[in-house]
Design a protein around this nucleic acid. Structure first.
Lengths: 143, 143
DNA sequence: CGGAATCCCTCCCGATACTG
DNA sequence: CAGTATCGGGAGGGATTCCG
């Protein structure tokens, strides 16, 4: 079983390295991956990019409630990590297309396993939350 | 295919509701789930809890670099969502045991699919990052 | 059209101290 | 032992503006 924990003493903090010091070896693969796709938008962008390449504004429209900034940031991160490619066409007006790489495609499978689970069990989770009582913790709500 | 996007106009923000207004229906299951397990510690705690129940300080020791506060918070969230149970033994000194629920166990499978993928492809990602050049973005680094 | 720069604000999370 | 209260820094992310 692959490890999730950090290696020994090293903190797991995946501080994105400064510009001139690229992130080299991460102590833990899964943490590293999660810190990329665990954000608000990455999964959604990857899914939207399937199956065919799309342009920036296409993605904006299809996703609907993402800001330009976040779409831009997300795309750049995904490109950096090799999940997607970015192709610029020297036209007026400019056109930029994003497309899944083989790595990106291969990621869709485990991702969908997780998405499927989430979909199947979301009701259970919501129900659990509603049933949840702060329990026998005997302190009072502060104020 | 289960949807990832938000439903229509509703923002995806999964603002944890205020204390007296529990989070009812989330617009998107996968987002909801990701916002729980996408944090720094949840996956690690779940994995550490497998296969047998463990006590608070056991978890502290095994994980190693988690603070008491974050362990406490993480456990509470996982308990709320029905991934784990919390059992308090009225002893001196106190003893509290955490254990995976069936829901928690069932989550381990898709989770490991993802972990496995991360493990298999982490090298590719690291390599992609190293190869990455800011590319043909034609503006100059601001200072 | 496809971004980048800036502002700002909200969580996340660590460190510490205190409690039953 | 098993937490909670509190403080505070920093990352995440929305809105807007500017620029090629």
């Amino acid at each position: 079983m692959p490890k999730i924990s950090s290696s020994k003493t090293s903190p797991l903090s995946v501080h994105s390295a400064s510009a001139n010091e690229p992130p080299f070896e991460q102590p833990c693969p899964i943490r590293d991956v999660l810190n990329r796709i665990g954000d608000q938008w990455s999964l959604l962008v990857l899914e939207t990019l399937y199956p065919e390449k799309k342009r920036f504004n296409e993605l904006m429209r299809e996703i609907g409630d993402i800001s330009k900034q976040m779409l831009s940031r997300t795309l750049k991160k995904l490109e950096q990590d090799g999940f997607i490619t970015r192709e610029v066409y020297p036209e007026i007006p400019p056109r930029v297309e994003y497309e899944l790489t083989p790595l990106g495609h291969s990621f869709l499978k485990p991702m969908r396993t997780l998405v499927g689970w989430a979909d199947d069990h979301h009701r259970d989770i919501v129900n659990a939350r509603q049933r949840y009582q702060p329990a026998e913790r005997q302190w009072q709500q502060p104020k």
